[in-house]
Design a binder for these strands. Structure first.
Lengths: 140, 140
DNA sequence: CTTGCTCCTCTAGCCACTAGAGAAAGTAGG
DNA sequence: CCTACTTTCTCTAGTGGCTAGAGGAGCAAG
């Protein structure tokens, strides 16, 4: 076991950028690692695993606070998995919500494109945006 | 023609909140309206129309800068509609991009839920997040 | 005249970073 | 040992699109 790797190597290994890694430490998502005599951070294998966990969760769209909870849970192997499941389920519901909203928007925006032969005076884009009655969109 | 309505009424008429209306003025999306002797803003019919246009575009997910351009275009009725169409098409592409990304995330997150009978030690949520190999997700 | 509403300006906070300044430490080559 | 280059350090400020709050002034009704 070496004493650990510097932040640049941790960054390369985890896919999380150097400033972001420091930011995660600052907000307490990552423990403060030991330092060299020259004040440089040294990350060990557990830190790298934690960084990969975070990166992966962020890629999947989890926000920081849920990730914080998941990391706590991951450190308690005997704890029932219910909470982790609930967090993931909430995230899934959130994704579904976003997808359905975007799908509705998509239909609305698609409906107003393709008027390239007209002038602005008769442009569907401008017209639809200006006149709420033209639109199928429901208020939030 | 009255001298115009105060900001609260403009807010009610447009669906844009009072502080947001002031914010739009601050960033130059909305012209600074005339004031009363007592320094209150007075919005006329054209301002209200502009506010409704903005609100509608925001509801459809347009960002501020595109809306700024669309507002400029809306003020030039003889201009060809090409630019407006291009802005809307870009937004549509953006929406499509987001939908497909979210759909991929949805599949990935769905795959790891429903392990409520296990402990954290064998939890799919924690496991999948911890081990990149478990995951179908592609690096951006 | 007092109560209560609306309005004013200004500053700071939200999220999750990202960018940049300026300095110190480490590393490779001569 | 000196120099050049890279990496790292801390700190501050900026992003987008608002939102919240402080502290004060105007205004309409009773």
């Amino acid at each position: 076991m070496t004493g650990g790797v510097p932040i640049g190597e941790a960054s390369r290994a985890s896919g999380i950028k150097v400033p972001t890694t420091r930011y995660y430490e600052q907000i307490g998502l990552l423990p403060s690692p030991p330092r060299t005599e020259g004040n440089r951070r040294l990350y060990d294998a557990a830190d790298l695993q934690r960084l990969r966990f975070i990166r992966h969760a962020r890629e999947l769209g989890f926000e920081i606070e849920p990730i914080r909870e998941l990391l706590t849970l991951a450190g308690e192997p005997d704890h029932p998995c219910e909470s982790a499941d609930r967090i993931a389920a909430a995230h899934l519901a959130d994704i579904d919500h976003k997808i359905s909203r975007l799908t509705a928007l998509r239909a609305e925006v698609a409906r107003m494109t393709d008027c390239s032969n007209h002038s602005v005076a008769e442009c569907r884009v401008i017209e639809v945006l200006g006149d709420h009655g033209e639109c199928l969109h429901e208020r939030h």
